[in-house]
Amino acid sequence: MKIKLNDLCKRFTSGEQVLENISYQEEFKSLAIIGPSGGGKSTLLRILGGLIMPTSGEVAFDEKTVTYTEKELLKHRRNIGFVFQSKGLFNHLTGKENIMLPLVHVHGYQKKEAEKVAVGLLERFNLGDDGGKFPSELSGGQQQRIAIARAMAIKPRLLLLDEPTSALDPELTSEVLDMVKELQDDGQNIILVTHEMGFAKKACDKIIFLVNGRLMEAGESPSLFSDPQTPELSGFLSKILEWKV
């Protein structure tokens, strides 16, 4: 998939500039957004997913510019899967109902068909026994995997994930990343914000590095890690890898 960002800026009504003149153009299968926290990663991902509007600038996927009006964004969001850091499941619905709700109410499925899709996905990702449970009864890892299943149920053109593992206990991280990897191998287009540098390096083909709202560095996956061009990136990588075994 092709992505093109043209001079993208975001300023919230309350404060300073969160994204400053981001321009970027690339063809990717899996794009990882990395950088220190507060750097604007989530904000950028929300703009790409049509959840918030940029202050100025342009976003295009496969040469089609996203129109930032409420009506067009509704359509845009319906083609995209979005997974949040945590608590993205509707907590009054069971896992299965979470997957069914968008299918029935947004994508016009009959209840029966939606249930079939939901059960199929739950089984595929070894969540068969958890579909009947409420989010509060599930582990963080199970919640995230169901959230990913819900996002995938609509067969999105693009799957966006905002630090899907950062709220998890370390031993649960790999079950979620394994699932993301499986989707990548199936050819799913993915943009992922992550602090899991190993995953970004091995499983993603393109990386962008965001600091203080600026795009500091961008490049191909393994080489960007072995050969950082900016002192900011080398500093960031050494800091984040300091205590890795």
Partner: peptide, 16 residues
């Protein structure tokens, strides 16, 4: 707020 944001993300409109 995550509940409302998730609702937006799956494509529900305001009334839904």
């Amino acid at each position: 707020s995550t509940q409302l944001e998730a609702a937006k993300a799956v494509g529900l409109d305001n009334r839904q």
